[in-house]
Write a protein that binds this DNA or RNA. Structure first.
Lengths: 202, 202
DNA sequence: CGAAGGTAGTTGACAGCGTCAACATTGTGT
DNA sequence: ACACAATGTTGACGCTGTCAACTACCTTCG
């Protein structure tokens, strides 16, 4: 679907803010983060090149909004993965969380970059809910005597780092081919996660 | 030191390629990756705005060269850390490798972003040597019966992911303040690393 | 109903960017 | 000495983010 023309846009767009976010998302998927520009998003939404400034203070603000969209999607996937995994098998539950994260990264590498890239003000609170999900899972595992005692925040961050590192390295194709060695990405990634799990499980 | 003027630059610069890399590095440190431009680097090196094209095919090529510089520095630091740690204590050796990586990330966050960012063609081979260092350390630990048997490449990647994830999250200030909780970054990061180590050590 | 004012969108301008084509200068090898 | 290759310069193009000034529409109050 090409750019909007002057068909159904009677001067006032209706919901330009959301349209710009979606246009930006499309650009991201199709052309990557380098190609993401305010003007292109505006063109895609069928408005003039400065119309976005009525909804976003600057380019960064649009990017931040796109990133937030990503945080929401990521959290939804993680929540879903958790709901679909056995309630008592904490290793499975943690694996499900990690794999959901990595799947998101593989399907939307550009979106991930925007979420965790250099764009400031996109700090903690955004990924906070997903992180909390991990902390709670660990705490539950500890309550069930399945996970070693210790600061759940510390444990969560360690696992988060492993998953996040794996996700970004996979998404940016920074994994040496020798390491992957033709293996299925899913089985490979999950195998990587077992190592810290072995350190946490009892 | 401001831009070069027409003092000591007798038309031919002498070693413009390296000068541009260093100029780019300076811009990176001082103004971040968003501010890095061919024209600015050229200005800093005291040449016209298209002179860089005699040494780099395009902006990406300059960035790739800067990234390579980073890979070299990172590898040097890791090698140094390994040399300075006890030869038989494999937990210490792995911790030293990880902490060297994280220190580099904290001191040069923008450089790290360029090394592992979206700039293509900056793939595996570059970080390869540092990665090999990790693989060798693990293999040595296995030979000494200090590390659990298993594919050292797999183990290395898992640890790499943890360290890389921690490094990027710290560098981008994506660690929720609650987690850090006023703790010393070094002790905190090292504590995070102990979890996968517990899974690997015997 | 009609004027007032705010909200949302437009036009035009500016400087900075990456890149290309054409040209100028310098060093080198025959 | 001269041609040639390597290196650097000038000028142009279209793209970008952003600002200022202007315009169209909606709402709301008199």
């Amino acid at each position: 679907m090409p750019d909007q023309t002057a068909k159904d846009t009677p001067y006032h767009h209706g919901n330009l803010r959301q349209a710009l976010i979606e246009a930006g998302l499309e650009i991201l998927e199709q052309e990557g983060s380098r190609a993401l520009s305010l003007r292109k998003a505006a063109r895609k939404a069928g408005v003039s090149h400065t119309a976005p400034y009525r909804h976003f203070a600057n380019k960064e603000a649009l990017i931040a909004a796109i990133a937030e969209e990503g945080y929401r999607e990521l959290e939804a996937r993680m929540r879903q993965a958790l709901a679909a995994s056995p309630p008592d098998d904490y290793r499975s539950r943690l694996t499900a969380l990690g794999w959901a994260y990595i799947q998101f990264a593989l399907e939307h590498p550009h979106h991930l970059r925007v979420m965790f890239g250099d764009f400031p003000e996109t700090c903690q609170p955004d990924a906070g809910d997903s992180f909390t999900l991990l902390v709670q899972t660990i705490a539950a595992g500890q309550a069930a005597q399945a996970i070693v005692p210790g600061d759940p925040l510390q444990f969560a961050l360690s696992l988060w780092a492993t998953v996040h590192g794996l996700a970004t390295l996979l998404a940016e194709h920074k994994i040496p081919a020798i390491v992957l060695n033709g293996r299925n990405t899913e089985e490979f990634a999950k195998a990587c996660l077992q190592i810290p799990y072995d350190g946490l499980m009892r």
